[in-house]
Amino acid sequence: MLKTSFTYTDMSLPIFVINMKNSVERWQKTYNRLQTLGLECQRFEATVGKSLDETETSHWYDPTANLKKHHRNMTPGEIGCYVSHMRIWQHIHDKNIPAAIIFEDDLLIENHLQENINNLSKLQDWDMIKLSDNRANPFIHTETLSSQVVLGNYLKVPNGGQGYIISQQGVKKLLCRKPFFRPVDVDFQFHSEIDLQVFGMKPYPVSEDLSFQSEIAAINAGRHSNHSTFLRNAKHRLAMYLQRKKISGDLSKVIKSQ
């Protein structure tokens, strides 16, 4: 059972790090890095998708919805990754934690992470704040939070689940995804389906550590069970195109009045 060792305030909040059972070195590296920044973190053991039996898999994953609404079947690795995130969301919900940071463990963490966290005190009624983007997707609108930090919204929400902040109201929305049918980072991009308000905070404080092969991906290794058909692929592309016409969140509603 995961235990929360400190209380959320405007200046600090729980940090959960998704880490494979045997990835001790990677956990230690992430833990030590956050310690140097004066931040505590808690390890959350990753789920190995290929270790789930058929009953467990069907508890989390809906292959029928996947066939209708995604362009290819999910791999055991994608299922395990989504389950890992969803188990943390459930923990945040059950413990009534106001907000938390979720990290995967293959990260480079910048010194300004604490400044990003400090600026949360200027926000209200937000669901998710992305802390990384390896593809440099632009903001549509921005609000300056401090001399160094800017909050923005998107038409194209960054993929990847390497690092983000999630609120209690955000996890309640995300838990409605169960059973899921797309990879977790793709579901973030389809934010409007559950009215998930997604923002980003730049400069992003985390990025993927490309010096490591993802151990989560390696342990969960597996190929897609089919090639995407033309029709499935076309439906997915159209759905994504329409989704990217919708702004990910209203900045005017999350900035506290001065």
Rank of each mutant, 00 (worst) to 15 (best):
S58E: 15
K3Y: 09
V150I: 15
F230M: 10
Q114C: 09
A99K: 11
G152Y: 04
G77V: 04
N32G: 04
C81Q: 03
F16L: 07
V17Y: 02
P76M: 12
V83G: 05
Q162H: 15
H224P: 01
C81F: 09
S5V: 08
P179M: 13
I18N: 03
V206N: 02
P179T: 14
V206R: 01
P179W: 12
F139T: 05
L113E: 00
S23A: 13
A239W: 06
Y204L: 02
L67C: 05
P203R: 06
F16K: 02
I92E: 00
E215M: 14
K69T: 00
D250Y: 11
D127V: 03
D105T: 05
H224R: 14
G200E: 02
L108C: 10
A136K: 12
K21G: 05
S228V: 09
K245V: 06
F230W: 15
P205I: 07
G77M: 09
R244E: 13
A65L: 14
A217L: 03
T9P: 04
I247W: 08
L39Q: 13
Y31H: 10
D185S: 07
L151H: 04
S51V: 03
K122S: 13
L145R: 00
N220A: 10
P203Q: 04
K95I: 01
L131Q: 04
N226E: 15
G77E: 06
P183F: 07
L131V: 04
L37S: 08
T229E: 03
D62T: 05
T4S: 14
S12K: 15
L52W: 11
M20A: 07
Q124K: 14
R237L: 09
L155S: 06
D250S: 14
D10G: 09
K130P: 10
V206H: 01
K246T: 10
F44T: 08
W60Q: 00
C176Y: 06
S132M: 13
L2Q: 15
C176F: 00
S252N: 14
N137A: 05
Q197T: 03
I101G: 01
K95D: 08
Q243F: 06
